[in-house]
Design a protein around this nucleic acid. Structure first.
Lengths: 200, 200
DNA sequence: ACCTGAACACCGTTCAAGT
DNA sequence: ACCTGAACACCGTTCAAGT
């Protein structure tokens, strides 16, 4: 586990292979299969390990809306520091044992704010979709930027935008890059939570 | 392109390999590299092709909030039918040429509702995070369910939940599966848009 | 119970050579 | 300009055999 953790931290999850890990610990690929069913199980172990190691419970606020926002932001922060893990996480729900406490905070906060248990669960899922999407989009965009220098697809598209057909996009085209680089996770989260809480 | 499209449609994006595609069209892997720079370029071509083929512009509603919701829902629907594509999409922004019109609708709708151009772009991004996250989480969960029969990690975790520690989760534990199976994309989207539009 | 060696059935990509 | 053959440097996993 220790070696696997190091490989992922230093070189990314793509470089963690059964063969590589086996070599690094001075063993054979097949020896690993005596301890895990397959590679996915190894990744799930790694996920639990990471969650237990970095996801520290926050002081739960007395104000229920604050509890929801704080729990989501804490999970977001842990994931942002370690974006590879989202790919593993989305495989199932956000159900690493150590993350459950945060799910509890969100569901509880939403119920305390007056949602039915059913709508609270749906609300939690909306928050999770938004959070997972933010991490994923941002992580993949970052990977793209580093590993080649040719202009991105987006740059090419925005360069020859027809202002007659897409006036709003043309209007914001030159600010697009700085605007989208900005971290607005918390703004979006606040809006989402407000919307979930508003009786509709 | 036609053959690549068929392989992806029938067997999933993982099964589309340069070698497999070459064999299927009666050529060699290296011949493909004369037409695309690498595999990623092939996937981007496939994405544009899919978008042009299935993303039909909707009648833009006169009501700006409706325009935002309809554009997002249309993109969501196209992606839900073809979840493999999200992995490619997240690589950059949602900037397939055919998708730009929908981005325009969302940004324009938000501005018409009174947001500044800056906040409209951030609003669009929040909607995109939510949408991409929903597709991704749902797609990966679906893949999981089909390809093995052992209980999922989530099932095991929920089975031995401590009601003293996580009372809300224990309370909804038996409804978790049906609740999360429900499609609540539109509810969450509505909440998010409402939250974005509310002056905060 | 735990490990090894050899094999199976693959990958993306490069390079040098052909027409 | 377009294609081929062979090679490089890998994958995850199975299977039969060893201690």
């Amino acid at each position: 586990m220790e070696t696997a953790r190091r490989i992922v931290a230093e070189e990314g999850v793509d470089r963690l292979t059964m063969r590589r890990l086996a070599k690094e610990i001075g063993s054979t690929p097949m020896a690993l299969y005596h301890h895990v069913r397959d590679k996915e199980e190894l990744l799930l172990l790694l996920l639990d390990d990471y969650a237990a190691r970095t996801l520290h419970r926050t002081e739960p606020s007395a104000e229920p809306r604050e509890r929801v926002v704080l729990a989501a932001a804490t999970i977001h922060e842990a994931l942002a520091a370690c974006p590879w893990i989202v790919g593993v996480l989305t495989a199932d729900d956000l159900t690493a044992t150590s993350a459950l406490w945060f799910v509890e905070q969100i569901v509880d906060g939403l119920i305390e704010c007056g949602l039915s248990p059913e709508r609270a669960v749906h609300g939690y899922r909306a928050i999770w979709y938004y959070t997972a999407g933010e991490i994923l989009v941002r992580a993949t965009a970052a990977r793209r930027r580093t590993d080649d220098d040719r202009p991105t697809y987006r740059e090419r598209v925005f360069a020859d935008l027809d202002p007659a057909e897409l006036p709003r996009l043309a209007q914001v085209a030159d600010q697009w890059a700085p605007l989208t680089a900005k971290d607005t996770y918390l703004d979006g989260l606040g809006a989402l939570v407000d919307g979930l809480l508003a009786a509709r």
